[in-house]
């Protein structure tokens, strides 16, 4: 030990003095130190600019539309005939298509997703969970265009073999496939909600001789209820905004009907159709694009805020 420290004295330069000297000329560094936070702040504000850009785009163009078509007519009109001699711009057919397809999706994904969540959170062993969860993530990572292809070329023909009334393009099959697409979302968010229920609550119930099922249904699910609801709401919002599956598999009939074997158009599919077609800039049809998009934006935003509100309430419970 002593020899070590003796040799420590043996040095050719005085580091601390060198450092002190360097400090004096480090003005560039000092400059960076002040500049960097500003640059980073500007980068972070790009996301705010994006929001402003979206709102500005949608609102400024939708205003043109509402100058030609009264808001009330737009939201109560059951006819959407943009290309006819006397064009009509009622959004109800699109809302109808959007709501029906999302409803079908949640009817599929809700029960299956929730039951998967129960299995993963309450019944599955660690090992099983570690295998199944990544597989479900793959399901969530498949591009929607692939689901669209699947709905159009596989699910629809499959259903038509035993239900011939189903049209080649219909709202049922994309609804079902959208449901499959959002299963992982509900499963993983609901599972998160259920695993964050403290174990003590479970043990308290099991210690009284209840079965696992009873504990899950009577204790865990009620405790995780708002988290589960939030996952449903987010999944619906995702289905409302989903575009490619419905565009491909549901066609473009602007039907205002409740017959799920028929072709219907959603808000998103309408946007694809109109923007892909040759709507001349400045035409009512062109502006209608933005009016529909604004409606879609508001719809999903409300759902997202609702989900956040519900899950925040949930957090307060523990």
């Amino acid at each position: 030990m002593a020899t070590n420290s003796d040799s420590n004295v043996n040095k050719a330069v005085n580091v601390s003095e060198l450092i002190a000297k360097n400090k004096k000329k480090k003005s560039i560094n000092n400059y960076m130190e002040k500049l960097v936070p500003t640059i980073l702040f500007l980068l972070a504000s790009i996301t705010v600019l994006t929001t402003i850009g979206i709102l500005y785009t949608l609102i400024s163009e939708a205003v043109h539309f509402f100058m030609e078509v009264p808001i009330l007519d737009f939201f109560t009109g059951t006819e959407l005939k943009p290309l006819s001699q006397n064009p009509e711009f009622g959004i109800l057919p699109l809302l109808n298509g959007t709501i029906i397809s999302s409803l079908i999706a949640i009817l599929v994904a809700g029960p299956i997703g929730l039951m998967s969540a129960i299995f993963l959170s309450e019944y599955a062993s660690d090992k099983v969970r570690r295998i199944i969860k990544p597989l479900l993530e793959i399901l969530a990572g498949i591009p929607t265009i692939v689901y669209g292809f699947f709905a159009f070329t596989f699910v629809t023909p499959l259903i038509r073999t035993f239900w011939p009334q189903l049209e080649a393009t219909n709202i049922l099959s994309p609804g079902l496939v959208m449901g499959i697409m959002i299963i992982p979302m509900i499963a993983s968010l609901s599972e998160d909600a259920m695993t964050s229920v403290p174990n003590g609550i479970r043990e308290g119930s099991l210690a009284m001789g209840t079965t696992k099922l009873e504990t899950t249904v009577k204790v865990v699910i009620p405790a995780a209820f708002s988290g589960i609801i939030a996952s449903f709401v987010l999944a619906i919002s995702r289905a409302i905004g989903e575009t490619m599956i419905v565009t491909i598999a549901s066609g473009s009939s602007k039907n205002f009907s409740f017959d799920i074997t028929e072709s219907m158009q959603t808000m998103t599919a309408f946007i694809v159709e109109v923007s892909g077609g040759e709507a001349p800039a400045g035409s009512t049809l062109h502006y209608s694009l933005y009016a529909v998009a604004l409606t879609l934006f508001v719809f999903t935003m409300i759902m997202n805020l609702l989900a956040k509100y519900v899950s925040r309430k949930f957090r307060e419970e523990y």
Partner: peptide
């Protein structure tokens, strides 16, 4: 970070500090 970059000097600092 305090601006010493010369390799030979750094080598020396490493040895002295680790001995210390």
């Amino acid at each position: 970070i305090h601006g010493i970059k010369k390799k030979s000097l750094l080598d020396e600092i490493v040895e002295n500090s680790l001995r210390g």
